[in-house]
Amino acid sequence: MRKKRYILKFPPQSGDKPLSYHLVRDYDIRINILKAEVRPGKTGSLVLELEGTKENLKLGIQYLEDNQVSCEPLDKKIHWKQERCINCGNCTAVCFTGALVMDPKNWELKFDPDKCIVCELCVPACPLNLFAIDFRE
């Protein structure tokens, strides 16, 4: 079993096909939606974590692409230079997944990479420039 993250982009008309149903039933892929931006009648985007065998993941992605859904693997990671952090909180203002939060006890920043979807909003939001995008796997 493998876990991988993808950014999916939907064409406007794809909304009526039960794509996720097929992914689950036909390819035995487990889906975890990390972020969704779907507006009816317009293009939408999804950040998903897919879990399945290597073979099934490949077939599932193929199936999506056959249905005009573009799938880009999310290989990037956010790197936080913690040692210089002043715990000002600016980055938490833009982090919607809850990957960056202030600890309500000591008011220090906590970063949970598992929740991060690499939206990159925190990069310009930090006044000390402490976030970098890491392209290594």
Partner: peptide, 9 residues
């Protein structure tokens, strides 16, 4: 809400 000044400091 989010703070922009450091309470911990």
């Amino acid at each position: 809400t989010a703070p922009v000044s450091s309470l911990s400091k």
